Simulated scan of single mutants.
Amino acid sequence: MEVKVSKKAKLPTRFGDFIIQSFNYKDKDHLCIIKGEIKEKMNIRIHSECLTGDALGSLKCDCREQLEYALKYINENGGMVIYLRQEGRGIGLFNKINAYALQDEGFDTLEANLKLGFKDDEREYSLVEFILEYYNIKEVSLLTNNPQKLKAISKDVKRVPIIMKENEFNKNYLKVKECKMGHML
Rank of each mutant, 00 (worst) to 15 (best):
I82M: 12
K41N: 14
R14M: 09
S154D: 15
G57T: 04
V128Y: 02
I131F: 02
V157K: 03
M184G: 03
D62W: 01
Q21E: 15
D104M: 09
M1S: 12
R123V: 01
G90R: 05
D156L: 13
K8Y: 12
G53D: 01
D17R: 10
K4N: 13
Q21L: 08
Q86Y: 10
K26I: 04
S58F: 01
D54W: 07
T52H: 07
E111I: 13
L174V: 12
G79Y: 11
T52F: 06
D62N: 10
V128S: 07
T109R: 00
R45V: 05
G53C: 01
I38G: 11
G92H: 14
D104H: 10
H30A: 12
Y69D: 12
I19D: 11
M1H: 10
I44T: 12
P147F: 06
N172Y: 07
R45K: 11
I38V: 15
S48Y: 00
N77G: 02
K138C: 08
Y25W: 15
C61G: 00
M42K: 01
A152T: 09
F107G: 04
C32S: 15
L102C: 11
K28Y: 07
L102H: 07
E87M: 10
D120F: 06
M1D: 08
L174T: 03
L11Q: 03
F118V: 09
N136C: 13
Y69N: 10
I137P: 05
F169V: 01
F18C: 11
A112L: 06
E65A: 07
Q86A: 05
L174N: 08
T13V: 04
A9S: 06
M181Y: 06
E178V: 14
E133T: 05
E139I: 05
V5G: 05
F130H: 13
I33C: 04
E65T: 04
K7F: 12
Y100K: 13
D17M: 02
N75A: 15
K41D: 14
K26M: 14
K28T: 10
I97Q: 06
L110V: 14
G88I: 11
S6Q: 07
Y100A: 09
E133W: 02
G16M: 06
G36Q: 01
R159Y: 00
V81R: 05
K60H: 08
L114P: 01
T109S: 14
N170E: 08
L56S: 04
N95Y: 10
L116N: 02
R45T: 02
G16Y: 10
A55P: 00
E129A: 08
R64C: 01
L174S: 06
N43W: 03
G88V: 11
R14S: 11
P12V: 12
I97W: 09
M1R: 06
Q66N: 10
V160P: 07
D17E: 13
L142M: 09
I20Q: 07
K151T: 08
I44C: 11
S141T: 08
E168N: 12
Y25D: 12
Q148E: 14
K155R: 15
V157W: 00
L110N: 15
Y173H: 05
Q21V: 13
K35N: 14
K151P: 03
E129K: 12
L132Q: 06
L71E: 07
N145G: 00
M181F: 05
E111H: 10
I20G: 04
L56K: 02
